[in-house]
């Protein structure tokens, strides 16, 4: 049984569990839909009052918003095991059970609890993208679609990397760390506005530290066919999502150090 098929089995098992609690799953899906719908409500409230922000319209910001939310929801759906790693695995000792099985811990963790409810948020993101398309308007030619898919893929890698780092930290802290919400939920929050509204230092963090701008801002500029008001050359815009994959690779290096630490302390 190769890894991909086993992953398929895990998905099947997760879905069967969720099917046992249809009401809860529905509630959760609605909740996630509401959670993000409400965020865009906040953005809308600000635009309603102020009209525009530094030359960006609501429609354009909605595209940033929609894409980053789709990205995050996909990552969130795939990496629940890493997200709750501290509380559900390290603290309870359930990670021992993972280690007792002859499969990589990574595979077992991404196979843990694949949540259907995130689909609600993905759908909501798509609705916002459609809204943005009509407001701006955006012309979705094949190149634009390809850039969007590529940006989402890089973004999923980036968020997955962040969650792997979060899990790695819980080898030391036992609890799942809220601080990482800075980079996940906080990252979504930051990336749903265009980079040039932020202070200089913050732009640098988002480009070179945790490269959220590389999976959101720069590729979206390419889709909107707007030159970067901060002066990044046009040719580099579609390449930037690569940074997300690099981040994921580095995260897994840290994860391996965490695994070694767990083996020597047991928690």
């Amino acid at each position: 049984m190769n890894a991909l098929r086993l992953y398929g089995r895990y998905v099947g098992a997760s879905l069967r569990v969720q099917a046992q609690y249809p009401a809860a799953t529905l509630l959760l899906t609605t909740g996630h839909l509401a959670a993000t719908a409400i965020e865009i409500l906040g953005v809308f409230a600000l635009f309603h009052r102020f009209g525009q922000v530094k030359g960006w319209s609501f429609g354009e910001v909605a595209l940033f918003y929609g894409l980053i939310n789709i990205t995050f929801s996909i990552a969130d759906m795939l990496t629940r095991g890493f997200d709750v790693f501290g509380t559900d695995f390290v603290r309870t000792g359930a990670f021992d059970r993972v280690l007792l099985r002859p499969r990589s811990a990574t595979l077992q963790l991404i196979g843990y609890d694949i949540r259907l409810s995130r689909v609600g948020r993905i759908l909501q993101g798509l609705v916002v993208v459609v809204l943005a398309t009509n407001l701006v308007p955006i012309h979705w030619n094949p190149a634009a679609v390809a850039i969007a898919v590529w940006a989402v893929a890089g973004g999923v890698a980036l968020f997955a990397g962040i969650l792997v780092l979060q899990a790695t930290i819980s080898f030391w802290t036992i609890e799942s760390l809220e601080a990482v919400n800075v980079l996940t939920y906080g990252g979504v929050q930051a990336a749903q506005y265009p980079l040039n509204i932020y202070a200089d230092w913050f732009r640098r963090v988002l480009t070179f530290g945790v490269p959220l701008a590389c999976v959101a801002y720069y590729p979206v500029l390419a889709i909107l066919k707007r030159p970067d008001p901060l002066g990044a050359p046009d040719w580099i815009l579609p390449l930037t999502p690569l940074a997300g994959f690099a981040f994921l690779a580095l995260s897994f290096l840290a994860w391996r150090a965490g695994m070694a630490r767990y083996a020597s302390t047991g928690s």
Binding site: L46, R49, F50, G51, Q52, V53, K54, E178, A179, N181, V182, G186, Q189, A190, Y193, I197, Y198, A199, F202
Partner: peptide
């Protein structure tokens, strides 16, 4: 604490950008 500093900073920067506009 770190989380809340970050969120606060983002929110304030966003407000500042809107206030600068109108």
């Amino acid at each position: 604490f770190a989380t809340q500093c970050w969120w606060g900073a983002i929110k304030i920067m966003v407000y500042a950008a809107f206030y600068e506009t109108a």
